[in-house]
Amino acid sequence: MADVAVVEKKEAIKFGKKERKLLTDPLDDNNPITVQVLGICSALAVTTGLKNATVMAVAVVFVCVFANTITSALRKSIPKQVRMIVQLVIIATLVTVVELTLKAYAFESYKQLSVFIGLIITNCIVMGRLEAFAMANRPYESSLDGLGNGIGYGIILLIVAFFREFFGKGEIFGAKIIGATPDYMINTAESAWLGWYQYNNLMVLFPSAMFVIAVLIWAHRAWNPKLVDVS
């Protein structure tokens, strides 16, 4: 009995090529947003500022990892007939945990993200990974897959948020960087070179998130041509 346990354990902590691929694949070749087209809604709504985007990214990584691990651990006992509902209940529970925690320890972010915390439930990345991966693999691999996908999603979120916050408000993480009043670090009103610059309010609005992601997809596919025409 003891021997078996040791063998199991040895196999479980292995981190080889296959495991590394689980982590890195979703960052590029199989990116949740730009390739799999999953989880777009929240990527649009919360990327008006880096602060919110960071909170959202961390929340999604958390939910992704734990939902994948739990589902994978239960995969043999989940009845096929109610599979979807069980998966959704697991996700919804984790999301509620996130909501209650944010409400207690990060109240400002909680207020600003409001409805969109709840929408992590229907963030197709989480659900998609449960169906596609966790239901067929062991908890350890599943947690890596969840981590990889969560991070792949988070990175895009942060990139989009950076462009929208910087070009839309002249701020990064709420710190005023470039604008036309004295409280900005670079005051364009007094600068000889940057007098023409003005941040563009359109970037903060919803549609511009679409444009930023479209350009990201363009850049990503131009750089990695094997992704052209996948979807």
């Binding site: 006992s77 989940i78 009845p79 096929k80 007939q81 109610v82 069980v86 209940v89 529970t93 509620t96 945990v97 209650l100």
Partner: peptide, 26 residues
């Protein structure tokens, strides 16, 4: 395929665990 009884049992156990966990946290 699981039988209806085992599905019910699974769902019941799961709901009570989840509800308890969340009520505790709340």
């Amino acid at each position: 395929m699981h039988s209806t009884a085992s599905v019910m049992r699974f769902v019941l156990i799961m709901t009570s665990i989840v509800a308890m966990l969340l009520a505790f946290l709340q």
